[in-house]
Design a protein around this nucleic acid. Structure first.
Length: 578
DNA sequence: GTAGGGTTAG
């Protein structure tokens, strides 16, 4: 026993391959290699040490074992599961299953971990049935890992079923389920579960609130977010920096950048690089370009070194605020500071130049940057070409997109919009034909709005809402009023070659308009309206919301896929630059 | 070889 302890303490210190080899030699010469505990420890240590070469060395040791025990197999499995290539662990798990050695709950646990990382749903399902067969299903830790596999690989129905059927749950099971729902784009369900958890007498911890906050951020559900924030303060979970960062992020993504900044300034724990980046991003999304740039300067003054994400956030801020010169300069500053721009930095600058109508410069950057442009660059250039009616550049970009095999419907919609704006219906038809043949579909647009703490979702031309009739009556009223105000719908934006009146209807029923109409009838006069949309806002909705903000005296805040728009008194905070 | 294994912000 004494010699065993001696071994282990020495093993802790053996971090280089040479030392490991010395110990292996030692075990062999003293005849202890084939005896289980020490040798298993040795394999474990090798398999889990960060250097990849050690994992293959662990496998080498494993092969020298005459009769490997379950734990020897597990040690290798665990190492493979956390390696960059977790699918190897799944293969190894199959090998174990075929070996005479019995698997245990840990074998399943490591294999599931690999599935979660590899997003291997069907393999996870197979291990699930093994778990049932071996009767490991009362093991909370194991079932929680299983839950995580289902959630991460996108089968939230299966995850929910496993969760509901668990006879014992602990806080981590709740956490996995809540963050799984939040990350799997079921944020409403995540919030419901968070509330149910509290009702059932659980005390959410820092991990729980991170999941709940993420759900609120996605939904722009600030009332719910405030409830979570209050809970965090009450439970003193704001001693945790990660939690503070998530609160800042939540307020930023809900359009309450001032509240985000308040939390940022008042947080008692140390600000990390991520804290600064989150705040810069919050300013960026909200169109506060100069505040974002000031914060970048301030972090440097406070001794924090900006990284690539800091610069990306600041570049986004320039982009959304139309600070073209500042953005172009920032790219240089970044390079001078020794932070290497990646494809996203170039992408943002290309977008920035494109939006400013400087298409040639944008094109030059694409051609001169040190990496291959991906599809997004050409989509950006195409989008900008559409805005500025540059058919030539649009065709260059489209040609590239076709070459690169893009089948994103947005590309086709944009190109056809370029043609439609010029009444080139024949070309529009050609693009539509291509769309049909390559089976591309437009991503359906939807919008959320929070009324009295409850989220309401609208898709385009939605008629499923209980108050649908009133909503459409309100839309009629709006249409009448804005017409009287002198508004003419921008029908050339609609893809199809259909009559003007129909085109106007298609636009009129965009989900954000439905959400705004519903907010108008269900909130008090004068209160701001908040809408979250999954796509970029279209030109027509943008123009209409400006007028609505004026004639109904309402501030309307819309978060689209990229940023916030604040409509007030007939103007938008983006100054029509987005 | 008793235990070991699960959740987390830009």
């Amino acid at each position: 026993m004494a010699s065993l302890i001696h071994f282990e303490s020495l093993l802790q210190k053996c971090n280089s391959l040479i030392q490991i080899k010395q110990f292996q030699a030692h075990l062999i010469t003293t005849g202890k290699f084939q005896s289980h505990p020490s040798r298993t420890k040795l394999i474990e240590l090798c398999a889990l040490s960060p250097a990849a070469s050690n994992l293959s060395f662990a496998a080498e040791i494993f092969r020298q074992v005459n009769a490997p025990k379950t734990n020897d197999w597990n040690a290798i499995l665990r190492g493979l599961a956390k390696s960059p290539n977790p699918t190897n662990a799944i293969t190894w798990f199959r090998t174990i299953s075929r070996s005479p050695q019995k698997i245990d709950a840990l074998t399943c646990s490591f294999a599931l971990k690999a599935c979660a990382r590899a997003l291997a749903l069907s393999e996870g399902t197979q291990i699930h049935s093994q778990i049932l067969r071996f009767g490991f299903d009362a093991d909370v830790l194991l079932v929680t890992t299983l839950l995580d596999v289902y959630a991460k690989s996108g089968d939230l129905d299966a995850a929910k079923q496993v969760f509901d059927e668990m006879s014992i749950r602990d806080i981590a099971s709740w956490n996995v389920m809540i963050s799984g729902l939040a990350q799997g784009s079921w944020p409403n369900e995540a919030i419901d579960l968070f509330n149910r958890m509290k009702e059932e007498g659980w005390r959410p911890d820092e991990v729980t609130v991170l999941g709940a906050l993420s759900a609120c951020s996605q939904l722009g559900a600030v009332r719910q977010g405030e409830i979570v924030h209050r809970y965090i303060v009450d439970e003193k979970l704001d001693m945790n920096g990660i939690v503070c960062n998530a609160v800042i992020d939540m307020y930023g993504k809900c359009g309450f950048v001032d509240k985000a900044y308040l939390v940022f300034n008042k947080m008692s724990c140390k600000k990390t690089l991520i804290t600064w980046n989150t705040m810069i991003m919050a300013f960026a999304m909200n169109g506060d370009g100069y505040k974002a740039l000031d914060l970048l300067d301030q972090m440097v003054l406070e001794g924090m070194l900006p990284d690539d994400v800091s610069y990306l956030s600041a570049l986004c801020a320039c982009n959304h605020a139309g600070l073209v010169e500042e953005g172009v300069r920032l790219l240089d500053t970044m390079i001078e500071s020794g932070v290497k721009p990646n494809i996203k930095h170039y992408g943002t600058v290309v977008d920035l130049l494109g939006r400013a109508g400087r298409l040639q410069e944008a094109y030059d950057i694409i051609n001169s940057m040190p990496m291959m442009p991906d599809i997004v660059f050409w989509q950006t250039l195409l989008g900008a070409s559409k805005t500025y009616g540059n058919v030539e550049m649009a065709e260059i970009a489209s040609k590239k997109l076709v070459e690169m095999g893009s089948n994103a419907s947005g590309d086709f919609v944009l190109l056809s919009n370029v043609y439609a704006a010029q009444q080139r219906w024949h070309d529009v038809g050609r693009v539509r034909e291509t769309m049909k043949n390559s089976d591309v579909r437009k991503v359906p647009g939807f919008s959320y709005t929070e009324i009295d703490g409850k989220m309401h979702k609208f898709v385009n031309a939605d008629q499923s809402h209980p108050n649908s009739k009133e909503i459409y009556m309100k839309l009629d009223e709006i249409r009448f009023k804005i017409k009287a105000y002198g508004y003419d719908a921008e029908t050339n934006l609609v893809l199809h070659d259909i009559g003007d009146e129909d085109k106007e209807n298609v636009l009129n029923f965009h989900s954000e308009k439905l959400a705004v109409a519903y907010s108008l009838i269900s909130t008090r006069d004068g209160t701001p309206i908040h809408v979250i949309k999954n796509l970029r806002i279209c030109v027509d909705c943008h123009a209409v919301l400006k007028i609505i903000s004026k004639i109904y005296s309402r501030e309307i805040i819309v978060r689209d896929r990229a940023r916030f728009h604040r409509f007030k008194e007939g103007e938008c905070s983006c100054r029509d630059y987005w």
